[in-house]
Structures are given as structure tokens and as C-alpha cells.
Design a protein around this nucleic acid. Structure first.
Lengths: 212, 212
DNA sequence: CTCTGCCCTGCACTAAAGTCCAATAGCATT
DNA sequence: AATGCTATTGGACTTTAGTGCAGGGCAGAG
């Protein structure tokens, strides 16, 4: 059981030092960075973690780093700290998903509490993402036809109806369906439906009828 | 097609007047209130709407009103405006779900844009809530036994397994199951699963085996 | 050309789910 | 006692889903 890691990003060495002391004594692992760029260069961390970030820094600001992390598909829970922030800045940060936005001087307990919430959120979000990614990965292994059948099955349609919709025999649907269950590693329709919803599977538009 | 309504809550009559002018010309219906209490007393509005709220008011503040609305099970999207706010205040508001937090003086376009986002969010959230409430209402109509069967069906278990789990005959399960489908107005297992997930149905703990 | 992957299908059969009709029984309310 | 809701089950039967084995066609890679 490794302790959660807090990444401190601040251009002021004395702030880094004091935050390190506080967070370490609170039981967290701590890594410090002097600029947003330095942090972005770090290898993505897989375990429980969060970022404590100074909003105003030379070069990439904290808000920019926040955007960059999201843009890089590497979203992380962020606790902002600032000495000279303003309301629009804090609002933007919160809109972009920040966990908290503290102004100096702040109580140590407030920071630790925020970090704790951030780590918890990170773990939760990571779990969600992982499961969604796994579901999508499985969907990606389906052949085009299997994907179509999959989408219709989770609609609740009968094999017969699916067959009609796709213009193939019912038997064919059964075969595809069996493969879908296997590839999606679903033991039941219920599981299949949940996997579909998680992966965001959409029903394909039904083809125009050839004529009544 | 009625226009969305914006509820303006501000203790300053001149602000109410100018906001009314701006929002009306932007195509919104507007109702103004001089205090949080006045607004709480209003009959809940069913259509698309949002609140434009001054944070600092005598009596109940904007932040308190925000809490009160949530506490009353009547959450509404809120756009805060303030002349003398601070960062902690804005952060608290955003954490509590505010759509935006504008400081005076603000651009009219910024307000209108925020209101538009708020109304959109309100419509979306309302829809979600309605559907969840509907699902729960249906679940509430189930008898205890039906509820158990329901919970197990959406797990993906076979009738035979459910029968074993509940200690009844497979036939009995079929009967309950049919009633569940009817009462839940589900046309397929897929729909049933989605209703269950939306209503937050949990699987009951399996009874201890009588002995291996 | 062969091999492989994808798509389509038929037949036969088992298992599971859904649908009627009908009946018994406990429990609570009226 | 009568009525109504819930829970339970049986029997008979139809419809679906799932499985195994068999085949065919088509297109791209080697």
C-alpha cells in the first residue's frame, strides 16, 4: 500500500519546500516541480495522486497546465493555490474541474483536506475511466457486422427483428450475437447492456425501406 | 413554445430594472425578487429557467439561497453576480454547482451567455431527474417479492438461478418477472436493466446456504 | 494460389423465456 | 365472513435464444 503522491508545482522554491514539509507530515509522497513544463515532462503516474498548483507562474500558468493535462488525455484532480488571484481566475479553474482554489495565506488543514478530496476524486475518476476504456477496447475488437448486431441487441430487439433490420437471416444474427457475447466478455444480456452504455454505443440509423 | 424564464434576485431595485431590460431584450421572460425569501416563496416553476442571483444581500445571502434550493429538492441552475465578492465565496458557489460567477461590472454578453448555459443545464438536469424519479416511482409499485426478482433479473441471472436463490420454484419467478416487466413498463431486458441502473437498484445479499 | 478473416445460411436440438388457464394459501382490511 | 392483494405453483404450449456441425462466398495477404 503506497501512499498517495502529491505533485507540487510552484515557481517559488520556498513554497515548494514548505508544502513538501506539510504534505509529507500528512502522510503523502511529494514530488515538486518548478514549472508547468517540468511537470508535463514527467512520466504519467499510475497510482493515487493529485496536483497542488500555483495559478500564476512564469511561462505556462496553472490554468494553462490544467487545460494541457485535459488536452493530453491525462486529467488529474487539481488543488489551486494563489497569492494574487482574482475571481474570474478562480471561476475558470473551478469550471475546468479544479477540486479547490485556495488563497494564501491558507490554513494547513484546509490544504490537507483539499488534497484528500482531490486524491479521492482522482481514484474514483480513474476507476471510471479505466472501465470505460476497457469497454471501448472490447467494442473495438468487434467486426463491423458484430458491432451492428451489438448495437441492436442492447436495444432489446429480438434476433428476428435484428435480422429484418439488417436484411440477413436470423441464424446469422445468432452467430454474430454469440461472438459479441464472447468478445465483450459478457455473461448475460444485462452485462452487455451495461458495457454498451458505458462505451457509449449508439444505434445505427435504420436503412430506408426498399418500398412497402 | 414559451420563452425560458430568468428569475432575478437582487436587493437593489436599479439592478433588477437593468437586468430585466437586458434579459428581456435577449428574449427571456423575467421575474424579479428583492430577497431570497421572496424567491423561495414563489411557486416552483416547471419550465426552462434559471436564477440570476446577487451573492450579498441582507437576510438570506445568495449562497444560502443556493443551499436552500438544493435542500428543498428544488435545485436550479444559478448565475451569481456580485459587486463585492471574494475568491472563497466564488469557489464555494462553484463547488455548490453554480453555472457562473460574474463580478460587476460585467459585459452584457457575458451575462446572456451565462444565462443561456444555465438554462440549457437546467433543462438537461431536469430531464435526468424526471426520468430517475419516474424509474423510482415504478420500482416503488413493485411488491417486495417482485423487487427481489427484479434485482436479480437485472444481474443477468437465469430464472432457474433466481428461483434457487430465493428458494422458490422457477415457475414462480416467471410470474413475478412478467409482472415486473409490466409494472416497470419495460419491453425488454435491456430496458429493464437501464431502468434498474437509473433507479439505483441494488442486489440483495444472498441468504446463507442452509449447509453445503 | 492458398490461407485467413469476415459474412451468410441451413438443419437439428436443447434450454430458457414467455403465455394461457387454473388453483391454493396467508394476511389485512372491511 | 367476505374481499382483495400477495405469493406460490402446476400444466400445457409457443416463441426465443443458444449450440454444434455443416456448408458457401468474398476479399486481402503472403
Amino acid at each position: 500500500m503506497t501512499a498517495p503522491v502529491v505533485f507540487v508545482v510552484d515557481d517559488d522554491p520556498s513554497v515548494r519546500k514548505s508544502l513538501t514539509r506539510v504534505l509529507t507530515s500528512a502522510g503523502y509522497g511529494v514530488e515538486t516541480f518548478g514549472s508547468a513544463g517540468d511537470f508535463m515532462a514527467r512520466t504519467p503516474f499510475a497510482g493515487p495522486c493529485c496536483v497542488v498548483l500555483d495559478v500564476s507562474m512564469p511561462g505556462l500558468t496553472g490554468l494553462h497546465l490544467q487545460e494541457a493535462l485535459v488536452g493530453a488525455g491525462r486529467p488529474m484532480p487539481i488543488v489551486f493555490i494563489t497569492g494574487h488571484g482574482d475571481i474570474p481566475m478562480s471561476v475558470q479553474a473551478m469550471k475546468a474541474g479544479a477540486v479547490d482554489f485556495l488563497t494564501k495565506p491558507f490554513a494547513v488543514t484546509a490544504l490537507v483536506a483539499a488534497v484528500q478530496r482531490a486524491v479521492a476524486k482522482g481514484v474514483k475518476d480513474r476507476g471510471e475511466e479505466d472501465r470505460t476504456a476497457e469497454a471501448r477496447a472490447r467494442v473495438a475488437r468487434l467486426t463491423p457486422r458484430e458491432t451492428e448486431v451489438f448495437a441492436l441487441v442492447v436495444t432489446g430487439m429480438l434476433n428476428k427483428q435484428i435480422a429484418g433490420q439488417l436484411g440477413v437471416g436470423e441464424k446469422t444474427v445468432k452467430v454474430h450475437r454469440a461472438r459479441v457475447m464472447e468478445k465483450m466478455q459478457a455473461g448475460s444480456v444485462a452485462e452487455l447492456v451495461r458495457l454498451a452504455d458505458r462505451a457509449g454505443v449508439m444505434v445505427p440509423a435504420p436503412p430506408a425501406l426498399p418500398a412497402g
